[in-house]
């Protein structure tokens, strides 16, 4: 999988801080990862772990404090003004709240056409054909619904319209920030399948940010797990879920509820709550909740190290990756 391919997106040591002085919080505290062309990287973690902030920092919706972001060889952080607006069209983002991501007072045809109109790249009949095509692709009949206002649509339909809009400029990278977590199960499945189809059709690369482990497993090739602003484990989805090497990943998976009465009844439950990012623990950030923590974990912060091909873990005592 990880041959000597050039990554599409390369993030290194990304730091995002909010607030000032004593109230400064590093929501993202040094995150590095790569996304290769055509793959889906899942980013999971609990609320406040910085996964959404990471996504927003990539789009420069929030300003990174330090680190580098490289998209296809272009330095994203160095861009300003028009160039920044331009590079944003090569990546696109879909948000969690489908209703609030569409302007309720605009017609959906215009909403989907917005990126084209901003750049005047496609105009006239060609534009109308493209819009109709995009709406059809996401399962909405442009002839019947194109002229309706966004407020007339349900959550699932709004998310389809958002997808159509994000594809208008044919981006290379699509960042999905909790895009299905506000939807009902049956609608969620439709959107996930639709996303898979469009990914192949448009040759997209995805960064799929979500808190739901099952959803992430279903769409991702590789998965990164975040805890308190840092990545603690990153690796191929199947191996990471089958044999997690970081204790946090293991507990996270143990807590995930499977819709199956025969599933092993609640494994060990992780106690405590994540510490405040205002005052992160020294050394390993997970040590305050980790049952295996030692003195070493208090003193030295573990770095991501390769434990298996393509599987990196930031832990001094990674769980054995042998059997199971």
């Amino acid at each position: 999988m990880t041959e000597t391919r050039e990554p599409l997106l390369k993030v290194s040591d990304l730091v995002v801080t909010f607030g000032m002085g004593r109230h400064q919080v590093a929501a993202v505290a040094g995150v590095s990862f790569e996304i290769y062309e055509g793959e889906t990287l899942g980013l999971v973690g609990e609320s406040g772990c910085g996964k959404s902030t990471t996504g927003k920092a990539l789009m420069r919706i929030v300003e990174p404090s330090s680190g580098t972001i490289e998209l296809d060889g272009t330095d994203v952080i160095a861009q300003k003004g028009k160039a920044l607006r331009n590079i944003r069209t090569r990546m696109q983002m879909i948000f969690q709240d489908p209703i609030s991501s569409l302007n309720p007072r605009r017609r959906i045809k215009d909403i989907v056409a917005e990126p084209l109109d901003c750049w005047k790249s496609v105009t006239g009949d060609e534009r109308d054909v493209l819009i109709s095509d995009l709406l059809t692709k996401v399962g909405i009949d442009p002839k019947v619904y194109g002229n309706r206002y966004a407020r007339q649509f349900s959550g699932g339909q709004c998310q389809r319209i958002s997808i159509a809009r994000s594809l208008a400029m044919r981006p290379k990278l699509l960042i999905c920030d909790e895009m299905v977590s506000a939807l009902d199960v049956s609608v969620q499945a439709q959107i996930l399948n639709l996303l898979e189809d469009l990914k192949h059709e448009y040759g997209l690369t995805l960064l799929f940010i979500a808190h739901d482990l099952a959803v992430v497993k279903n769409v991702s090739d590789r998965v990164a797990v975040m805890y308190l602003g840092r990545i603690c484990e990153i690796g191929p989805a199947d191996t990471l879920y089958e044999a997690p090497a970081h204790p946090y990943t293991k507990f996270l998976l143990g807590a995930a509820l499977e819709a199956d009465p025969d599933s092993p009844v609640h494994g060990e439950v992780l106690g405590g709550e994540p510490p405040s990012p205002l005052n992160p623990p020294s050394g390993c950030r997970f040590r305050t909740r980790c049952p295996f923590a030692t003195e070493k974990c208090v003193e030295i912060e573990p770095q991501l190290e390769e434990v298996a091909p393509g599987h990196h873990v930031a832990c001094h005592y990674p769980l054995t990756i042998s059997k199971k």
Binding site: I61, R88, N103
Partner: peptide, 10 residues
């Protein structure tokens, strides 16, 4: 979000 979305589209 639709304001951010507009920004994101350039």
């Amino acid at each position: 979000d639709f304001i951010i979305a507009a920004k994101v589209q350039g």
